[in-house]
Amino acid sequence: MSRHFPAFAVAFAMLCSPVAAQEHLIFATASPSEGPISTVIFNDWAARINDDGAGIVEIDVRHGFTMANPANFYDRVKDGVVPITWGIMTTIGGRFPLTGMAELPFLSDDAETASVAFWRLYEEGHLDAEYHDIVPLFLTAFPQSGVHLSSPLASLDDLAGARVIAGSQTNSQVIQALGGLPQSINPADAYEAIQRGTADGRFVPWTAFPPFRMEEVTNYHIEAPIGTAIGMVFMNRDIWDDLPPEARDVIMRHSGEAQSRLLGQFFDAQNDGIRARVSNMDGHEIVAPDAQQSAQWETWLAPVTESWLERTEGGAALLERFTLLLEEAAAD
């Protein structure tokens, strides 16, 4: 009889012990439900986690702007109102100066390489000082932004005083250094500003065209690697720390570098597809500085990088490391 007692005791203990509750995490995407990033990236990511983590963790995707939007997404997670969200980190003025390095001109060419390099930079701990309230799950560096105007320039020697909507301090410095007049206008109001003629254009990547209908109000598109931004899916740190280790393991199996690479690939494909579509539209012209003009632009924009280095503690070492990581990611 004593030989069977341990097995009986174990079974009895299992029946009497409370079953661990499945973790339920709301992911407020701050993106339209029908948007490609929602349908292709966010839904798939959550589905993989929910399948792998059945009984352990569930990601409850909530699209739209009800629970979080592009203006408040960071505070909603920081304050614990929602556990997970998505947004463009460099639109949050002053909070992410190190992350703002991605906005510097002439750093990268494609989103995939830059996304992988930036994730590795984060994973090495170089950005910990500004991520103390959040835990990045995966991220992307967007494709390079271009200058999209409502009418052509006489030449690309400079922007000839064009009034260009720019999204950050570094973006504004880029536009000003190229001879334009930067304007600070909410992205949601950009269409109307250009349509009414209070702005001449906007500094954004091609991927911003569908949600903001930029092809309806701009027709002259200047391409050059003069800056990008970082987008990120991230989680409230306290909520993350309270998760059981097995829940965190499930989430990260489908996040991290692999998911960052996937998101970069997604945006590269989106960028190419949108560019091709706009190039085939009547009345649209896509141009780029020639070799001589590009050299001049690099000279004009060098002070933008110098300004970032001067105001960013540890910026020189960070930029040097990121440059090396870009080279390594490109060679993968």
Rank of each mutant, 00 (worst) to 15 (best):
residue 2 S to P: 08
residue 9 A to C: 13
residue 12 F to Y: 11
residue 14 M to W: 08
residue 22 Q to D: 06
residue 29 T to V: 02
residue 35 G to C: 01
residue 49 I to R: 04
residue 49 I to S: 07
residue 51 D to V: 11
residue 60 D to V: 11
residue 60 D to N: 12
residue 63 H to A: 15
residue 67 M to I: 03
residue 70 P to T: 05
residue 70 P to L: 06
residue 76 R to N: 10
residue 82 V to L: 07
residue 99 T to D: 09
residue 102 A to C: 09
residue 102 A to P: 05
residue 113 T to Q: 07
residue 118 F to R: 02
residue 119 W to I: 03
residue 121 L to R: 08
residue 122 Y to L: 11
residue 123 E to L: 03
residue 125 G to Y: 08
residue 126 H to Y: 11
residue 145 S to V: 02
residue 145 S to N: 12
residue 151 S to T: 11
residue 160 A to P: 00
residue 163 R to V: 01
residue 170 T to W: 05
residue 177 A to Y: 08
residue 181 L to I: 14
residue 192 E to Q: 15
residue 195 Q to D: 12
residue 197 G to N: 12
residue 205 P to E: 08
residue 206 W to C: 06
residue 218 T to P: 03
residue 223 E to D: 14
residue 224 A to Y: 00
residue 228 T to V: 07
residue 236 N to T: 10
residue 238 D to V: 07
residue 249 D to G: 10
residue 251 I to Y: 10
residue 255 S to V: 03
residue 255 S to W: 01
residue 257 E to F: 00
residue 265 Q to D: 12
residue 265 Q to A: 12
residue 265 Q to S: 14
residue 277 R to K: 14
residue 284 H to R: 13
residue 285 E to Q: 15
residue 286 I to G: 03
residue 290 D to E: 09
residue 296 Q to S: 13
residue 307 S to F: 06
residue 312 T to E: 10
residue 316 A to E: 15
residue 318 L to R: 12
residue 321 R to N: 09
residue 323 T to W: 03
residue 331 A to N: 15
residue 331 A to P: 04
